[in-house]
């Protein structure tokens, strides 16, 4: 499965924003969970990632937890969110 340009951009953003040592873009599987399992991100990372989405793409996430959970499930869902809601 090929990685889209947006997915690649998001991988790089995640690594840079969350200061993930020793993680390369290739290590992030677009279909694997980002949080707890898979990449193993935590709740502070979720806040940090929300901030990065706001800064870079102008996306403000609603505070309702269930939809955020779906958007942040994996890289593919994150890319779909950015695709549909980006302001810049």
């Amino acid at each position: 499965m090929t990685t889209t340009a947006l997915e690649q951009e998001l991988k790089e953003m995640i690594i840079e924003t969350l200061e993930l040592e020793d993680v390369t873009p290739e290590d992030i599987d677009p279909n694997e969970p980002l949080f707890v399992e898979g990449l193993g991100l935590d709740s502070i990372d979720a806040l940090e990632l929300g901030l990065a989405l706001q800064k870079r793409y102008g996306i403000t996430l609603e505070s309702e937890a269930e939809s955020s959970r779906q958007h942040f499930a994996n890289l593919k869902s994150l890319a779909a969110l950015v695709e549909s809601r980006r302001q810049k």
Partner: peptide, 9 residues
């Protein structure tokens, strides 16, 4: 600028 939660923590 908004505060970084990780940096604040």
């Amino acid at each position: 600028d908004p505060l970084s939660p990780a940096r604040f923590g």
